[in-house]
């Protein structure tokens, strides 16, 4: 087993397929919990706290929805990042954009800008610089036209945001097979994200998605647009579901 030291760790590269080393001389955005070890003089601050001192951080991290889940690592040292033993991949953007599942984004250089994607649970990175994303198994790159299971979708680059496709034959077969009851627990095959145009789609093996804390905040925020009557209907539905799950 090779033993690494502060001086021998790579500047910006994988230590092994599941761990990435970033030599800091300045700052990096890091998802909370992605850090496993560090050498040197490194400070970790909440993005909000950091941005109150350094205004540029707020401009780079323009997603109030995700800001609570991120910190800024600042100082001089070497930081090691990893996520659940998943593969960690680095992506270099040059005046480009890539949209990635928010829970799989581990860190990015402050030269990049983060924005929320229109697709819930995803964020878009814009500009020039390096970012790190984890995947369950190595990333699979495919080209449109392609239809992807939403759970297996890791991200996409250059192509337009996907449309939702419903499989007509699946719906018919389900009806014929009197599976309406089972339809509630959707298996995923009847609904896919449809990618068209030129670009690249990134896939991983489907997984139980890690709880995305931002999703609750997003839904809560959107619920504000409901009329009082609609809010009542939603509230009753959620209460009924909570009761059902308790049983």
């Amino acid at each position: 087993m090779k033993t690494w030291s502060a001086s021998s760790l790579p500047d910006v590269d994988n230590v092994n397929p599941y761990c990435y080393s970033v030599r800091l001389a300045g700052s990096w955005f890091v998802q909370k919990g992605a850090m496993i070890a560090y050498y040197g003089d490194v400070r970790f601050d909440a993005v909000t706290a950091f941005a109150s001192r350094q205004a540029w951080a707020a401009a780079s991290f323009s997603s109030p929805l995700y800001v609570q889940d991120w910190v800024v690592a600042e100082g001089n040292g070497v930081v090691l990042l990893a996520d659940r033993g998943f593969d960690v991949n680095s992506f270099d953007l040059a005046e480009g954009n890539l949209t990635v599942r928010a829970t799989n984004l581990l860190g990015f250089a402050p030269t990049l800008e983060l924005k929320q994607s229109i697709v819930p649970g995803f964020v878009t990175l814009l500009g020039t610089g390096t970012f790190l994303a984890s995947s369950n198994g190595p990333v699979i790159f495919v080209e449109p036209p392609f239809r992807a299971d939403p759970e297996a979708l890791l991200g996409w680059a250059d192509c337009p945001s996907p449309a939702v496709h419903h499989d007509a034959q699946w719906m018919m077969a389900s009806l014929r097979g009197a599976l309406q009851g089972a339809f509630g627990r959707a298996s995923g095959e009847e609904r896919q994200y449809d990618f068209t145009g030129a670009g690249t789609v990134l896939l991983q093996s489907s997984e139980v998605q890690r709880e995305d804390p931002a999703l609750l905040r997003l839904v809560t925020e959107q619920a504000l647009q409901l009329t009082p009557q609609q809010s009542g209907v939603l509230g009753a539905e959620l209460a009924a579901r909570a009761r059902q799950q308790q049983v």
């Binding site: 495919v142 239809r147 992807a148 097979g177 489907s206």
Partner: peptide
């Protein structure tokens, strides 16, 4: 296995199969 299709290209259709002796 249902729920294990990650994505596809081309003209592929999917249909649930249930029980023995039925099928699509």
């Amino acid at each position: 296995r249902r729920g294990a299709m990650l994505g596809y290209s081309g003209r592929v259709a999917f249909a649930p199969v249930h029980g023995q002796g039925t099928g699509v």
